[in-house]
């Protein structure tokens, strides 16, 4: 069964058709990668799916509900959580507080209960703190819990971002270039982490430029170029697909010229 079904999604920025009738399905339990040269529309697709921008046309079904037009926070509450291409943490808060914010949806505290300091609030806070520590453990940041997120090394900030998203208890996790800027050993350990995340029963839609990672972790790969799907298949099929090679070579060629 498709956990996420995107039908004929289009996004237009003025004269630019950033995504042109994109259709794809993410099946429960799989890792699907979305690849494509710079400017292909991958991040735009994420933004449209997760409610950050309203698509010009098309539908997005998550758990069989059309989520187009819903607020991002409501989509997150349904279990669809995304991360960002550019490093995105709460920089002036400790790593632990970052996770506590990520646990927003788990937390059950009404404003009145908070202001009256009902015992249920203190109990909830203790549960949240324990849970946050567990999540930090999971990404091996337990010894950084009191450090400001903005002061962590780059690779650890990227891990923290994923941990924040995990705290929101996603059913489907959209990762936008999670290893960009990581060194090879960090990338390798992130790949192992991804397998653990998957083992938790979380379905993953991954955007990534690191082909070694894409080929290593994906069940299926969809290749996007100029807003359209040009190929779709297993990692092996994608690697040898002439259209894909042309799209990437063309991109590299353009870069050399400019």
């Amino acid at each position: 069964m498709a956990l996420l079904a995107v039908n004929n999604l289009s996004v237009r920025f003025g004269g630019l058709l950033a995504i042109e009738s994109l259709s794809l399905e993410v099946r429960e339990g799989e890792v699907l990668s979305l690849i494509g040269p710079n400017g292909a529309g991958k991040t735009t697709a994420f933004n449209a799916i997760s409610g950050y921008l309203r698509p010009t046309g098309g539908e997005v079904f998550f758990k069989d509900k059309n989520i187009v037009g819903r607020n991002t926070n409501d989509i997150a509450a349904l279990g669809l959580v995304r991360t960002f291409q550019k490093t995105s943490v709460f920089p002036n808060r400790s790593a632990l507080e970052n996770i506590l914010i990520g646990l927003h949806l788990t937390s059950k505290q009404s404003p009145f209960a908070i202001m009256l300091a009902l015992p249920s609030v203190a109990r909830d806070e203790r549960l949240l703190a324990a849970e946050a520590e567990r999540i930090l453990d999971f990404v091996n940041l337990q010894n950084k819990k009191d450090e400001l997120a903005g002061a962590l090394p780059y690779g650890e900030q990227r891990l923290l971002e994923v941990a924040i998203a995990l705290a929101a208890k996603p059913k489907l996790l959209l990762l936008d270039e999670p290893v960009s800027g990581m060194n090879p050993s960090e990338t390798a350990s992130f790949m192992a982490k991804l397998a653990e995340i998957r083992a938790l029963g979380i379905t993953i839609l991954l955007v990534e430029h690191d082909m070694k990672m894409v080929m290593g972790v994906s069940d299926r790969v969809v290749c996007l170029s100029q807003g359209r799907i040009i190929a779709n298949g297993t990692p092996a099929e994608i690697q040898s697909n002439p259209e894909v090679i042309r799209a990437y070579l063309g991109e590299r060629h353009k870069r050399v010229v400019s």
Binding site: S50, Y52, N71, T72, N73, A76, A77, V81, R82, T83, F84, S88, V89, F90, P91, N92, R93, I101, G102, H104, L105, I164, A165, A167, A168
Partner: peptide
């Protein structure tokens, strides 16, 4: 501190 990130986790 970071509105897009806050929204992504359900705020």
């Amino acid at each position: 501190e970071n509105e897009p990130l806050a929204r992504s986790v359900g705020v």
